[in-house]
Simulated assay, not measured.
Amino acid sequence: MSSSTKQPDVITCKAMVAWEAGKELVMEEVQVSPPQPHEIRVKVVCTSLCRTDITAWETQAIFPRIFGHEASGIVESVGKGVTEFVEGDHVLTVFTGECKTCIHCASGKSNMCQVLGLERRGVMHSDQRTRFSVKGEPVYHYCAVSSFSEYTVVHSGCAVKVSPHAPLEKICLLSCGVAAGLGAAWNVADISKGSTVVIFGLGTVGLAVAQGAKLRGASQIIGVETNPEKYEKAKAFGVTEFLNPKDCKEPIQQVIKRLSGGGTDYSFECIGDTGTVATALQSCCDSSVVS
């Protein structure tokens, strides 16, 4: 059999496995199965930690599990039917995949793919089975990525090819936090030039929103954040004014409305708190957009 048709073998590598909710992750030797049709196996070069990983580790019921979903890596092998990737390609993982044919993918208005939408059951989309195991026992996936492993298997629609010249140690942030924030500003809200914007939370997502708002020409970008250490960095991303709710003697939405001349045109909640969502809505003018 020629090397071009040889089927990839099971790989044994290191991975951080969560055995129970809230319990310390354990470095384990895991077996990673070959990619099945329309899947690729990726050598993970860099992965970052998202707050969503921590929340799921603390609360979700599917264990044992390998977390992580913001990753950059190199394609190690490809399954049958994969045409958009070859061995050696540099990629970013995408936890909300795109089949490119369903009604949502075709609309251009949503990324909630009907085929490769949010995966919460810990198995692959194609056969509802896991590609990880430890001593013969299944270990489950997370967000269709599981990047806290030296190797992982993802559906080909859950990865994006990138330039081999892009620094993998930096661009892993683009696969979730930056894409979410910049996409919310650029694609969802479609921020208009000269508009006013407020952003609740100046983490990775919030800073990406600020950058997107700046690029779209927003005239005022208000950052709401309780950690003053983030202020200087946020200026470089485009934030023009800062508010710390702890320093305000009145509800923060009233301060924002006064500062923006009646409420902002766009409001972004980048914390993930239902109470803050209501505050973000109350900070807007009557014709604004909330994301």
Rank of each mutant, 00 (worst) to 15 (best):
A234K: 07
A234Q: 04
K235F: 04
K235Q: 12
A236F: 05
F237D: 02
F237G: 06
F237I: 10
G238D: 02
G238F: 10
G238M: 03
G238H: 07
V239F: 08
T240V: 09
T240F: 00
E241G: 00
F242N: 08
F242R: 12
L243A: 10
L243G: 03
N244D: 14
P245K: 01
K246I: 15
D247W: 11
D247Q: 13
D247K: 12
D247T: 05
D247F: 11
C248V: 12
C248F: 06
K249H: 14
K249D: 15
E250Q: 11
E250C: 11
P251Y: 10
P251S: 04
P251V: 06
I252N: 05
I252R: 03
I252G: 03
I252E: 00
Q253A: 08
Q253L: 01
Q254R: 12
V255H: 04
I256V: 13
S260I: 09
S260E: 02
S260H: 05
S260F: 00
G261T: 02
G261C: 03
G263R: 04
G263S: 07
T264Q: 02
D265Y: 05
S267N: 09
S267V: 00
S267A: 14
S267I: 00
F268H: 09
C270E: 01
C270N: 06
C270K: 03
C270G: 05
I271R: 04
G272V: 15
D273L: 12
D273C: 13
D273H: 13
T274D: 12
T274F: 11
T274M: 12
G275Q: 11
G275M: 09
T276W: 02
T276L: 11
T276N: 02
V277Y: 14
A278S: 13
T279D: 10
T279A: 12
A280I: 00
A280P: 03
A280W: 11
Q282D: 14
